[in-house]
């Protein structure tokens, strides 16, 4: 489990402004037409990036196309990121693209859970702090952002703020227990015991 421990994430960042970014935007449904997650990194935000009709109509370059942010490993987002469909293909695509952590005002619950389960921490900061982080990154895209899950902080160019991460998710990530299946199978006799108390399992 040690190999799976995630205590720090460090790297340059990519600011993506906007509320309620849904998983259909992150990974359009047609890319779910496959029996593996392989290659999904090629399709992240595809329908709004350069080369798409909407992307070419847009006045501004999409942050995922902006060469200033090439190689970024931390995504900065606003409120309710990852809402909508439960498709794990969205965080899978982001992770395969190179994102190793997401910092935002808030996250949709299913997206948050899916991300933790693939070792992609999603941490929250206040709207003002997020604004500050985005401005600093936009000003100096080469600035390195450091997220310390154990200390509960994130830092860039001397600006430090506290991060929010539910204790269960933090513990799962820092101890490497985010791949939960093993945990759930560990004391399987207890599962059978609970099932035996449920009247519907026995057909009433």
């Amino acid at each position: 489990m040690d190999a799976l421990r995630i205590t720090h994430v460090e790297g340059t960042a990519l600011p993506m402004r906007g509320e309620d970014v849904d998983t259909d935007r992150i990974m359009p449904a047609r890319f779910l037409r496959a029996v593996t997650f392989e290659g999904l990194e090629q399709h992240v935000f595809e329908d709004e990036r350069s080369g798409s009709v909407a992307g070419d109509r847009a006045k501004e370059q999409h942050p995922f196309d902006n060469p200033q942010y090439a190689g970024a490993s931390i995504l900065l987002v606003n409120r309710n990121f990852g809402c909508g469909s439960s498709r794990e293909h969205a965080p899978q695509g982001l992770r395969r693209w190179g994102i190793r952590a997401v910092v935002g005002e808030s996250f949709s619950e299913i997206f948050f859970g899916n991300s933790v389960m693939i070792g992609l921490p999603c941490v929250t900061v206040s709207p003002d702090e997020l604004h500050e982080l985005m401005e600093r990154v936009e000003e100096r895209p080469s600035a390195v952002l450091r997220i310390d899950l154990t200390a509960g902080t994130c830092e860039i160019d001397g600006f430090t703020c506290a991060i929010g991460l539910p204790a269960a998710a933090r513990d799962a990530l820092v101890t490497g227990a985010w791949d939960t299946t093993g945990l759930l199978l560990a004391r399987y006799e207890e599962v059978n015991a609970v099932a035996a108390t449920l009247p519907y399992v026995a057909g009433f």
Binding site: S86, P91, I110, G113, N114, M117, T180, L184, L185
Partner: peptide, 14 residues
């Protein structure tokens, strides 16, 4: 509603 890794959890452990 769950993602695919959780589908794996439920398949394997209910």
């Amino acid at each position: 509603g769950i993602g695919t890794s959780q589908v794996r959890d439920v398949l394997a452990s209910q």
